[in-house]
Design a protein around this nucleic acid. Sequence first.
DNA 1: ATGTCAAATTGTCTTTTAGACACTTTCAAA
DNA 2: TTTGAAAGTGTCTAAAAGACAATTTGACAT
Lengths: 250, 250
Amino acid sequence: MVGNTRKKTDLNPNNSVDCVIFGFDFEQIKVLLIDRGQNLGNSKNLRALPGNLIYEEEDLDEAAYRVLEELTGIKDIYLEQVGAFGNPNRVNKESDREWLKSIRDEPNARVITAAYYSLVKIDDFVPRAHSFAKKAEWISLTEIEELAFDHFEILQVAKEKLKQKIKIQPIGFNLLPEKFTLSQLHKLYECIFEKPLDKRNFRRKIQKLNILTNLKEKQRGVPHKPSQLYKFNEENYQLLTQNGYDNFGF
Amino acid sequence: MVGNTRKKTDLNPNNSVDCVIFGFDFEQIKVLLIDRGQNLGNSKNLRALPGNLIYEEEDLDEAAYRVLEELTGIKDIYLEQVGAFGNPNRVNKESDREWLKSIRDEPNARVITAAYYSLVKIDDFVPRAHSFAKKAEWISLTEIEELAFDHFEILQVAKEKLKQKIKIQPIGFNLLPEKFTLSQLHKLYECIFEKPLDKRNFRRKIQKLNILTNLKEKQRGVPHKPSQLYKFNEENYQLLTQNGYDNFGF
DNA sequence: ATGTCAAATTGTCTTTTAGACACTTTCAAA
DNA sequence: TTTGAAAGTGTCTAAAAGACAATTTGACAT
């Protein structure tokens, strides 16, 4: 809103937002992480969640949308709060302290962060490096073992929230392109729940919900039987839920 | 932990915790609210959620447990984070500003709060007024129309989280005494979901879960057929959930 | 043209769960 | 002993979940 009139001194040194940005490449769930490009002698160059301090006169949600847009250029997407993380030691790893010294006016301030997660269409977004990020990359959930600050913990909580949320709201469509196949949707749910789901039962249930529109259009150029393409039917979804229906789990 | 060595100047003026403490009197869900005892000419004396600033060197969860214990004397109870609330105007009602001036060193600071909800056995707790609270009272959810700060909004979100959570974890027992009847449990679920639930179907499902122990003991002194008393069976609950079962909804 | 590969697509049966529905039992107190 | 008030109980039906395997389709290679 008033972002262009803001100065660095308008930042609130004690509160930040961090974003867990999920993507899906039809194979695995990925998370957008930044590389701080530290070439320190002994400490690891850990990746971090994109995040930053908020402005003094800024709502938390607003800050999350702003940071997300600054980092990805994407707006009007699904965004949900994970929670507040405020362990006084969350910022105390040696490598994290080093790094903060190089980018913050008050590197020793205690920072309480509000974490958000968002679901984006991975192809709409080409990671571009942010001011203090040397790289921004999609990393598979399965290969993340350690992150800067308390970001690994935040990621675990975000995954759990996503798992719960998708059982009551079909937010997974935010991770898929406009047109998608049932197999892609099926694979997505398997990745999120981290367990195999019976193909026929999955298809039966999702089709019965009546929130997919068959585009009467087929995949092209695949070396096997081409799949039907579908899109999410927002109107039918509204109709379905306005009477309180909330069972989108598998 | 180190509470007795803490001074007022160790407080973090920008971050607080607020607690939505739910209770159940066998009739309705209640929330513990404090009365700030304002006798202002024109502005209303709105009730508030119990909450306070956190200490600089204190984890948020720890702060929530501390504040809760300071206010209620209760510990080792169910406590869960609702989320962070940080609207820059959340503290801007005239009556709230007035009050903050009387209790805070920095009454104009922007305060971001982490809200928690907890479920307590109402009879274990006799509200006792806290330093800056003139009264502490159990108020029925149904009669709360407006609260101080953004506390009404926090309450709504907390209610929603509770509703969702109780569908996947039988946390309602935290609101009941050790020994309770099926009718009391039934009524509790009706209050939380804000809709009637069929008695027979409710009893069938809860009994099938096998997480209740029949105490072979009856209610006494009631002017009608006395009810069997039950207690929550923690061991069976563990057995049930260790394979991923999470359907405690009705 | 034919064959092969890879993934898409489809249906049935069984078991479990949800939902609707009403009468009998038990104790206390009048 | 009667009355009032809530406790306690069973069946039927419909819907959903879960297990399970053969056939179809298009691309590509030969």
